[in-house]
Design a protein around this nucleic acid. Structure first.
Lengths: 216, 216
DNA sequence: CTACAACCGGACCGAGCGGTCAGGTTGATA
DNA sequence: TATCAACCTGACCGCTCGGTCCGGTTGTAG
């Protein structure tokens, strides 16, 4: 996707190595997280360390390329779900996909930490994902399937929460997240319950003092 | 608590410095997480780096001392709540306290990652906390206030999830976790909902193949 | 007051990190 | 096939980290 943004066409071996690096780094980050050293990734790819920095200015750029790809895939899946017949179960399906992405790829979850402040590319991909989530949530809300004060942002953040709740035991109980996602889903579905605590709004209401958030 | 376990009495200045180090490290880890260097902590305490390693064999031991203290405080608060009149709201109160501990102290949350495999001291403190949570959950379960398949372990893990869901925006919306704790609480309260997905049991049922967990 | 063990400080060590660069290698072009 | 820019490599750099160690300092027991 972002591969062809190169100003000039790459030489055949260079293009091959770039792909190889992207794949190797993705697999390695997915398994061990983004703390793996560049040297280790180069070693696994059977290339020199310098080659990595020829293709990516620095480590963050490499991480961003991979994480953005994952986030955009999830966004795309979410967009496809906008056509589903049942909006509420589409939303649940989306959340399930979201947790699966994380449990398959540690780097995605780690990148989420930088939602507030981080790489601009990841920031943009996150915004896109928020948009998709909001659209899905909107549909479910209109249907009356979920509480009417849930936002797309809530959905994304809670989906991360479900994964991270189960993370400490992920090695021994790999699918524990399904349990916690079910709890959270139930919490979102219960339309009869009392309204959620205030700090909800994606854009700050003018009257409120501290509940607001940056971006819109 | 763990302070008097020393084999011999400390010299006055040594005891003072130990306290100072513990307090400084706790405050620093709380604010910046456990990645802060030992040198930085020593600097803040106005002591030499060597002094830190005189009192704690290595960095992990220092972290463990502080995190265990926090976990035990939470355990104690939970134990006190066992006497509350309403078991269900006592459980919710406990969960609120748990998230507050984390949002006040980043190191506690980070330590949770090592629930599966980590420092034996933290492991023990975690087990104690699980016990307290289980007792509180048991009462609420008996009362019928929450679903009957929720365990103490679920409560602890979900409480971490609530914090981590809100964490990315914690700087700009400090109390967002209340919102997500409310969602999770609703999910736990809904006694009418379908039973939670399987991987629940604290001890593996003999018939199940992979749902089990280590320890009991 | 003396003497000494306990204690303190910070220079020092080795390992590992992200990132650079000179020099050898190779794919495209004509 | 000859040429050369693009490419690859791994030694190297500067930095930070956890942890060690020894010479100087200080609390305290007798």
């Amino acid at each position: 996707m972002t591969a062809e943004t190169q100003p000039r066409r790459l030489r055949a071996d260079a293009a091959r190595n770039r792909r190889l690096l992207l794949d190797t780094a993705a697999a390695t980050f997915a398994e061990y997280g983004t703390e793996v050293s560049i040297a280790e990734i180069a070693r696994r790819a059977g290339l020199g360390k310098g080659t990595v920095f020829r293709h990516f200015a620095n480590k963050d750029e490499l991480i961003a390329a991979i994480v953005c790809d994952q986030l955009d895939r999830l966004s795309a899946a979410g967009t496809a779900l906008l056509d589903a017949v049942d909006p509420t179960s589409a939303l649940l399906e989306f959340m399930t996909l979201g947790v699966e992405v994380q449990s398959r790829d540690r780097s995605v979850c780690e990148a989420g930490v930088s939602i507030g402040v981080g790489d601009p590319g990841i920031q943009a991909a996150t915004d896109r994902l928020f948009g998709t989530a909001e659209a899905l949530t909107e549909r479910a809300r209109r249907q009356g399937g979920i509480r009417d004060d849930v936002t797309g942002q809530d959905v994304i953040l809670l989906l991360r929460g479900a994964y991270q709740a189960a993370a400490p035991l992920a090695r021994t109980v790999p699918e524990l997240w399904r349990r916690y996602l079910a709890v959270i889903a139930d919490g979102l579905l219960s339309t009869t319950a009392a309204p959620l605590p205030r700090p909800a709004s994606t854009r700050p209401r003018p009257t409120d003092r501290n509940d607001g958030m940056p971006h819109g």
